[in-house]
Amino acid sequence: MGAEGVGGLTPLPLDEDRLSNAADRGPANRRLFSIMAVIGWVLMSYGVYGLIINAAQTHPSSWLVWFLGGDRRA
């Protein structure tokens, strides 16, 4: 889509609040992000570990298909 919006209407100019598909340079606060990323990935790893050690109940391949989108055949 170019400068013209839906129905030939001209969209308002981009303002600083717009969430667009323009490029960004990643997390703004790198220190905070690094700490939170470590905590978050530890918790995610714990979740994956739990899925694997309880494979008899979680059926990881079926679980993963549903986690990624869902499929009755899974």
Partner: peptide, 30 residues
Amino acid sequence: PWNFFFPTGHYWAAWITIGALIVHIGAKAS
């Protein structure tokens, strides 16, 4: 309509999701 036992699959998915949420908060807080 799936093969896994719901409480177990739901429980471990919650840990994964909350971990990913913490990462996202770290990226977007500022």
